[in-house]
């Protein structure tokens, strides 16, 4: 052995093989296997296996009401879904909703993260209040928003009336239904954005900031030329992570608009839900479910690519 010191240390920090029974020895030798058996068994049974079934189902003509024994139809489901105009619109709605909520979250989240990165009186108090929306039950807060959006007796139109603005038909008009839901989405999930961006801000190196301060840079200059460029990677990661979340949004949309009026707020998630569990078109819903999962994996792949590029810098 060329390096006796290293050898001695390796021996010293490995548990003594001779002590204990054979069972303990066996557990020690296969620790990574033994410790991961429960997780892997559960995740294979509860995620991998269902994914297999959903793919299998997507190639059959499963219909709960008329057709109990399904036969294979090849790629028919995957071809036919694109003829479904309601589904095509739901894809548009999904990305409209996700894009707009995540954009709103980014602006507000960045502003609040910058604020929470300073020290001021009562910071812990403000922060705990700020975190409340993200741990609130989505169906519960939807009820409050339903009352707020009410055309005649809602809080929002009451405030608009107080400042002499004409009332808006929030969730009952096709034009305003989606912006209303986006407002709820921004309210509900901006705190998450704040937390991710705040963690990013706190991990930035301090040297560039000190150098800029010594050079007499103003706060706006520091923000624009140092903080934001340094935060670029964190912002992209936060944007994509929140997008994946927003694309899957279901609870608030079902509770507040049920996808209406006239399907104007129906997202992919809801379209699949209605297809499978209201109309019973299991085969078609399975195909749509696979496509939906594909969209999410695509967003995830962009994230992995961007992260890799960042690491190589």
């Amino acid at each position: 052995m060329p390096d006796d010191g290293l050898q001695a240390r390796t021996v010293a920090v490995t548990p003594d093989k001779r002590s204990g029974s054979t069972l303990t020895d066996w557990v020690d030798r296969n620790l990574t296997v033994v410790f991961n058996v429960p997780t892997v068994v559960f995740l294979v049974a509860l995620v991998a296996f269902p994914v297999g079934i959903v793919i299998f189902t997507s190639f059959g003509d499963w219909q709960l009401i008329t057709n109990q024994t399904a036969k294979s139809v090849g790629f028919d489901n995957y071809i036919n879904v694109w003829k479904d105009e309601r589904w095509n619109w739901s894809i548009f709605h999904t990305f409209y909703y996700a894009g707009a909520t995540v954009f709103g979250q980014l602006i507000l989240g960045l502003a609040t993260a910058l604020l929470f990165n300073r020290s001021f009186a009562g910071k812990a108090f403000y922060r705990s209040i700020w975190m409340m929306p993200m741990i609130a039950m989505s169906t519960a807060i939807s009820l409050v928003w339903i009352l707020f959006f009410d055309n005649a007796f809602g809080m929002l139109n009451y405030v608009l009336d107080a400042v002499n603005v004409a009332p808006i038909e929030w969730t009952s008009s096709p034009e305003w239904a989606m912006p209303s839901l986006i407002l709820v989405g921004v309210w509900h999930h901006t705190p998450f954005m704040t937390l991710i961006l705040l963690a990013g801000l706190q991990s930035l190196p301090t040297d560039p900031f000190e150098a800029a301060r010594i050079d007499g840079a103003s706060r706006w200059q520091i923000l624009w030329h140092i903080t934001l460029p340094l935060m670029q990677g964190h912002i992209i990661v936060a944007l994509i992570l929140r997008s994946i979340f927003a694309v899957k949004e279901f609870d608030t949309i079902l509770a507040i608009t049920e996808g209406g009026p006239r399907y104007a707020t129906e997202t992919m998630n809801m379209n699949i839900y209605f297809n499978a569990f209201e109309y019973g078109y299991m085969g078609e819903a399975a195909a749509k479910g696979v496509i939906f999962f594909g969209f999410i994996l695509l967003i995830q792949m962009i994230l992995v690519k961007l992260r890799k590029r960042e690491w190589s810098h």
Binding site: L46, V47, F49, P50, V51, G52, I53, V54, T57, I244, K248, F250, N269, I272, Y273, A276, F277, M282, A285, A286, G289, V290, F292, F293, I296, L297, Q300
Partner: peptide, 13 residues
């Protein structure tokens, strides 16, 4: 990453 709705179709079946 898996959306619950995608898992719910096979789960239900």
């Amino acid at each position: 990453m898996i959306p619950y709705i995608t898992a719910l179709v096979p789960f239900w079946m």
